[in-house]
C-alpha cells in the first residue's frame, strides 16, 4: 500500500490553511484580545483571594490560557469544510470511488487542515506572548517556559498525540456530516463540546474538584489539556504516564469505533444531487 495519496491529501489541506495570511493576523488579534480579557479576569480573581490554594498558580493559569488560545484552531470544532461541501452537493461519491482507504484519506486531510491552521497561529502567538511580551516589560503576563527540558520533550510528544486525537474526533464529525448530509449539525454539537471539554473556556484543573476526574478522563482533555499539564509540570493523578496512556487509549478506541461507524454509514449512504 502506497502512502502517496494520503500525503497528497495532507499537502493540499496544509496549503489551504497557509493560504489565508490575513486571516492568521486577524485571528491573532482576536486571540490576543480574548487572552488579555481572560488573563486580567484571572489575575484579579487570584489577587482577591490570596489564601485559596488553587491547583494552578496564577502564572500557570496564564500560561495555560496563552497555549490554549494559540491552539484554538487545533480543536475539533466541526467537520472538514471540504467534506461538508461534498455532502451537500453529492460530490461525496467521488471519495467513495477512490481506490484508497477512506478513513486514512479523510484523516490525513483533516489532520493537515488542523495543523495548517494551528501551526502558524501557534508560532506567531507564542512569539508575541512569550519573548515579545518579556521585551516590552509585560513579563508577569507572558507565556512561561516549560517546567523542565524533559517535560518540554514529553509535552511535544503529547501534543502530537493530541493533534492526532483531534483529527480523529473531526473524523467523527465527518461521518456525522456524511450521515445527515449537512455540516451544520457537526458544528452545533462539536463547537460547544470542544470549547468546554478541552479547557478552552476555563482550565480543566480549575473546575470544582468533584468533576475533575471526569474531565481528565474524557477524550477532549487529550487534545490540549494533557499536553499543557505536562508542559507546566502540574501533577496528573498517576503521573505523565496516565496522561499519555489516556491519549493513546482514546486514539485507539475512537479509531476502531469510528471505522466501524464509517463502514456502516458508507453502506447505507444515500447521496443527493446529480
Amino acid at each position: 500500500m502506497s502512502l502517496r495519496p494520503y500525503l497528497t491529501a495532507f499537502g493540499l489541506q496544509w496549503k489551504i490553511g497557509l493560504r489565508y495570511r490575513i486571516a492568521v493576523v486577524a485571528g491573532l488579534v482576536a486571540q490576543m484580545w480574548f487572552g488579555a480579557v481572560t488573563l486580567m479576569a484571572y489575575a484579579s480573581v487570584y489577587h482577591a483571594a490570596p489564601d485559596v490554594q488553587a491547583p494552578l498558580s496564577l502564572r500557570q493559569a496564564m500560561t495555560y490560557t496563552w497555549i490554549q488560545q494559540s491552539l484554538f484552531t487545533l480543536l475539533p470544532l466541526g467537520c472538514l469544510p471540504a467534506i461538508g461541501d461534498a455532502a451537500r452537493t453529492g460530490a461525496i461519491v467521488y471519495d467513495l470511488l477512490r481506490p484508497v482507504d477512506m478513513w486514512n484519506w479523510w484523516l490525513s486531510a483533516s489532520l493537515a487542515r488542523l495543523l495548517g491552521n494551528a501551526v502558524p497561529r501557534a508560532v506567531l502567538l507564542a512569539c508575541v506572548a512569550g519573548p515579545l511580551a518579556m521585551l516590552v516589560g509585560l513579563g508577569a503576563w507572558s507565556l512561561a517556559g516549560p517546567a523542565s527540558l524533559i517535560s518540554a520533550a514529553l509535552a511535544l510528544l503529547s501534543i502530537t498525540l493530541g493533534a492526532l486525537l483531534s483529527a480523529t474526533i473531526v473524523m467523527w464529525w465527518n461521518i456525522l456530516t456524511a450521515r445527515t448530509l449537512s455540516p451544520l449539525g457537526s458544528y452545533a454539537v462539536g463547537t460547544p463540546l470542544a470549547v468546554l471539554l478541552s479547557g478552552m473556556l476555563l482550565p480543566l484543573p480549575l473546575y470544582p474538584d468533584w468533576i475533575r476526574p471526569f474531565l481528565l478522563a474524557q477524550p477532549f482533555a487529550g487534545i490540549t489539556d494533557i499536553p499543557i499539564r505536562i508542559y507546566l509540570g502540574t501533577p496528573i493523578p498517576g503521573g505523565v504516564a496516565t496522561g499519555l496512556g489516556l491519549q493513546i487509549f482514546w486514539l485507539t478506541a475512537l479509531t476502531l469505533l469510528g471505522r466501524l461507524w464509517m463502514r456502516q454509514t458508507v453502506n447505507r449512504l444515500e447521496v443527493q444531487g446529480a
Binding site: 479576569a41 484579579s44 480573581v45 482577591a48 468546554l196 476555563l202 480549575l206 473546575y207 470544582p208
Partner: peptide
C-alpha cells in the same frame, strides 16, 4: 460559559 464563571466563583469564593 456561565458554568465556567461559576466554577471560578466556587473555587475562589468570589469573583475578585
Amino acid at each position: 460559559s456561565f458554568f465556567g464563571i461559576w466554577s471560578l466563583f466556587h473555587r475562589f469564593g468570589s469573583i475578585a
